[in-house]
Simulated scan of single mutants.
Amino acid sequence: MEKYPGYVRKPFYYETDKMGIIHHSNYIRWFEEARVDALNFMDCPFEKIEAEGIMIPVLGVSCEYKEMVRFGDEVVIKPFVTKYTGTRLDFEYRIYQGEKLVTTGTSQHCFMSYENNRLIQLKKTHPIIHELFLDYYETTKESY
Score class of each variant (00 low, 15 high):
60 G>L: 00
71 F>Q: 06
141 K>A: 02
98 G>F: 02
18 K>V: 14
14 Y>I: 06
142 E>P: 05
13 Y>R: 00
99 E>M: 09
96 Y>L: 10
28 I>A: 12
18 K>Y: 09
132 L>Q: 14
55 M>S: 09
94 R>A: 14
6 G>Y: 02
11 P>E: 07
10 K>L: 02
142 E>N: 12
127 P>Q: 13
14 Y>Q: 13
97 Q>V: 08
141 K>H: 08
102 V>A: 12
19 M>Q: 12
128 I>W: 04
56 I>S: 00
130 H>D: 15
8 V>H: 11
139 T>I: 04
138 E>F: 03
143 S>F: 08
119 L>W: 00
33 E>R: 11
10 K>P: 01
84 Y>W: 00
110 C>S: 02
85 T>Q: 06
108 Q>G: 13
141 K>L: 10
58 V>A: 07
35 R>P: 03
58 V>H: 03
126 H>I: 12
125 T>N: 05
54 I>D: 10
98 G>R: 09
28 I>G: 04
97 Q>P: 11
35 R>K: 00
25 S>M: 11
60 G>D: 15
8 V>G: 01
142 E>K: 08
70 R>S: 10
82 T>V: 15
26 N>I: 00
119 L>Q: 06
133 F>P: 10
67 E>V: 11
17 D>I: 05
84 Y>K: 03
8 V>E: 09
51 A>G: 03
6 G>V: 03
118 R>M: 12
48 K>G: 05
101 L>S: 04
83 K>R: 15
108 Q>N: 10
6 G>K: 02
138 E>I: 11
83 K>P: 09
52 E>W: 00
37 D>E: 14
45 P>F: 13
37 D>I: 05
61 V>M: 15
133 F>D: 03
50 E>T: 04
31 F>N: 05
109 H>G: 10
50 E>L: 02
2 E>G: 02
126 H>F: 04
47 E>V: 04
21 I>S: 08
119 L>V: 08
96 Y>E: 06
14 Y>G: 01
113 S>K: 06
19 M>L: 14
49 I>N: 05
104 T>I: 13
26 N>Y: 08
4 Y>W: 07
8 V>D: 08
